[in-house]
Design a protein around this nucleic acid. Sequence first.
DNA 1: GATGAATGAGCTTTCATTCAT
DNA 2: TATGAATGAAAGCTCATTCAT
Lengths: 205, 205, 205, 205
Amino acid sequence: MPRALRERQMLDAAVRTFGRHGYRAASMDDIAELAGVSKPLVYLYLDSKESLFTACVRREARALVGALCAGADPGLAPQRRLWEGLLAFFTHTARHPDGWSVLHQQARTHGEPFATEAVVMRRAIVDHVTALIAAALQEAHQGARPCPGELAGLAHALVGAAESLAEWAAAGPVPPERAAGMLMNLAWNGLDRLAAGHAWTPPDP
Amino acid sequence: MPRALRERQMLDAAVRTFGRHGYRAASMDDIAELAGVSKPLVYLYLDSKESLFTACVRREARALVGALCAGADPGLAPQRRLWEGLLAFFTHTARHPDGWSVLHQQARTHGEPFATEAVVMRRAIVDHVTALIAAALQEAHQGARPCPGELAGLAHALVGAAESLAEWAAAGPVPPERAAGMLMNLAWNGLDRLAAGHAWTPPDP
Amino acid sequence: MPRALRERQMLDAAVRTFGRHGYRAASMDDIAELAGVSKPLVYLYLDSKESLFTACVRREARALVGALCAGADPGLAPQRRLWEGLLAFFTHTARHPDGWSVLHQQARTHGEPFATEAVVMRRAIVDHVTALIAAALQEAHQGARPCPGELAGLAHALVGAAESLAEWAAAGPVPPERAAGMLMNLAWNGLDRLAAGHAWTPPDP
Amino acid sequence: MPRALRERQMLDAAVRTFGRHGYRAASMDDIAELAGVSKPLVYLYLDSKESLFTACVRREARALVGALCAGADPGLAPQRRLWEGLLAFFTHTARHPDGWSVLHQQARTHGEPFATEAVVMRRAIVDHVTALIAAALQEAHQGARPCPGELAGLAHALVGAAESLAEWAAAGPVPPERAAGMLMNLAWNGLDRLAAGHAWTPPDP
DNA sequence: GATGAATGAGCTTTCATTCAT
DNA sequence: TATGAATGAAAGCTCATTCAT
């Protein structure tokens, strides 16, 4: 069997095992068995448990960021890009729960060097979101200039809200559209306006 | 040394160790050493690693919920209660980073029975917040009746945003007032209104 | 509470615990708790686990030998002494199963120095029985002179048979009289014929 | 080294260690060292201390019963079968003292689930012996019909006597033929008379 | 390309034993 | 006379990792 395919099998097995049991509780035996190969082969291809986990984190991070970028097409109007990005986020996390667990739970909880890896990816996303909401606000209110520190904090809050909603949506289950709509309602309009009857609705494409 | 005191020392050491290294990576040796006692004593008083971790989770959960309740005084007007609750949250998590890590990261990531424990506590908080924003909205817009499903989702989003901001504030560091203000701006007013110049400000006490 | 009484309590608890769980599996905690005292007191009175177990073995050995001597009254005719001795044996072991377990099972299975202790006691009993059957045979067949080596072996067999029947009787339960009668049927009839010169020889193949 | 061979080495080492020191006192380290392998390998092949001990008990039980069956050839006349069975028993126990200790001492003294295992094996032997002496008595005294309860008790006594003599013979040392002859002298002469109607009764006081 | 065989190091847990009072 | 507090030492078990083939 060609190497690339075997490696994919192993990573799949690893993501599933790490995602469900955590980095420490997952044993190399479990992973090798789930992948249908012998343990030495896992070591031959992926070197060590640490390196295997890192590979998982990287692959899943790339996949998530890729999904976000694919959704938030730079050709769209800013507010719509935000909406599409959220939609892509909720869709992807719902479809890849183990990968999402690896990124969101496991990588952040098991110390160095994984935490850093996870933080870097998350920062990339937050930065993206920062830019996105800056653009969207500019679009809506020409001349608006929220200070950058403020923007970063707001982006952090928005990302955290999305992460929390992703979990909630998974447990529901709640369709991605509804989760994304909820978040836009909260973040874009604010609770106050929402209560006053101004529900947010997706702008026309 | 009296038993109660020793037990507190051990829990302190355990929260610190678990919070920093995670449940699996923390060894009972480490904890005992940090507590300044021998390992058998830890077992004599707290029974097992699992039970020790559970005790940590419970203690920190109680402390956090207690801080929130102390802040969000039921005598206050709803919107102000929300604000004070957030303030208490950011203050407490900033002051007890290890306890917060135990609750927010470790307990949720290391399987049963801890996950359930953590989920129960979080649900209690989310429910609280749900009631809080319902009341605040009623106060601001008589007759407003967001459907309950909607409210629950919004509360989840808000709690997630707060958790994310807590981490950001810790890294900053950013004072609790600023983090809480940011979140009220986002959640109460919405980004849109914020950009239009309507910054949210705490209501008079 | 007077020392002698306390010590008896402890030995009672120890015999029960050792008899039921074995020397290694019984913990000093268990014994102290069952005796209703604190552990240091057990050590103060009985010095160590080893010495405590030895004290148990000695006490139970003395009790068993005492019961045998009380039953096998030297004033009786030899054959009757044998019968009464067996009766006393089955009665005592049935009434003190834990003590019997300590002597018969635990002391012999847990290495030095207990094995020696148990062997010494058992040898004393076997010697007694040897003398007893020698006398009984003399009584029945004047002039019969089984060689001493032979006698010792027969006595060993008889004691082993009695031990095995004791276990069987306990499980039955079977009354001591019946067990003793069985053994006399097997052994006496056999011994009697042997003394009369009817040695058994292997049948031709 | 092939797995089967290694496993045999481990069982050999375990039987020796368990037989000499007892189940609890024997440590997995000791066994692994005596077997010339590392501890993890013992666990890999035999799963746990309990399961290792069980494997020892089973193997030794099978070996003993096998030896008995090989000796007590069903083609022989009943009385001779009894004699050959005893001979096989004394020969086997003398040749495998550690295995015999595992079966006779350790398995019965260390609680469940071993006790049951040992009891089952012993019952099988006693049942065999019961049938054997029943047949032998029929052969010697046509029409003799000792009641089954009586027979079972006699068989228990005989087996106990054999066990005790095995120990005595080992300490002697005494050759198997002599031990077996002694036992036949005691038991057969006795049984024979019993079957002929000469039941023993207590002499008058 | 792939694996059966093997291990060093470390973890949780238990227990006999002692001190200070 | 009696005990609450405390520990050194060791046991059972697991796991990431490596040879030899």
